Simulated scan of single mutants.
Amino acid sequence: MTERAIRLFGDPVLKTVSDPIREAHPGARALVDDLLDSVRLPGRAGVAACQIGVNLRAFSYNIDGDVGYIINPVLAEVSGEPALVEEGCLSVPGFYFPRSRYPYARATGVDLDGTPVEIGGEGLMAQAIQHELDHLDGKLYIDGLDQPTKREAMRLIRESDWF
């Protein structure tokens, strides 16, 4: 398929809770192909379907060369003491802010054939799972910033060239 343009902060699709993908959805295979093509670009750890303008529950990931996808993901487990990590987002380009995330996360879902899928891990994988699931729930990572950081983030975003 093709790499799709990333929707930017301010686009309503990014603040909308994504719908589950029903079995045998006619566009599911094309959506997954586009998600995989979109996440393979350098510097990308994950792409949620809403980021490419599709309000369905699926995301792709690219962590240390491990590229994959998950449909209808559910956060199954988080563990460890939440810690601040520098986080960015393709939909808020050019900015990184400290965001609290659990050091371990695991999600369950299905693949295109309906076979159960489980992804999980620590570090960047844990961060990506939490980040992409937030997208599917209509949240951006800046929504979870502490108030002083969020005020500064919003000021910088409003002053950015792309906003």
Rank of each mutant, 00 (worst) to 15 (best):
D37R: 13
V13Q: 02
R57T: 05
V78R: 13
R4Q: 15
Y96F: 12
T115G: 05
T108M: 05
R57Y: 08
D66F: 06
G80H: 11
A28G: 06
C89P: 07
I129F: 02
P116A: 02
L156M: 14
D134R: 09
M1Y: 08
K15A: 10
L133P: 07
T2E: 12
Y102D: 01
V32L: 03
V74I: 12
E122I: 03
S100N: 10
L145D: 10
E87F: 08
A153P: 05
G27F: 13
I71P: 03
I119R: 03
Q51H: 08
V39N: 00
T108L: 09
S79P: 09
R151Y: 15
R158H: 14
P20F: 04
N62H: 14
G121Q: 02
A48M: 06
E77Y: 11
N55S: 15
Q51P: 05
P148K: 14
P98V: 03
L36M: 07
Q130N: 02
E23G: 01
Y61M: 06
Q51W: 05
R29D: 13
E152A: 15
A58T: 01
A107R: 07
I21H: 06
S38M: 02
G68W: 07
E152C: 11
G80T: 11
A107M: 03
A49E: 04
G27D: 15
N62F: 06
E159Y: 11
P116F: 03
E81C: 08
R151M: 15
S160V: 10
M125I: 03
K15M: 00
L14T: 00
G68C: 06
I52A: 07
L84R: 12
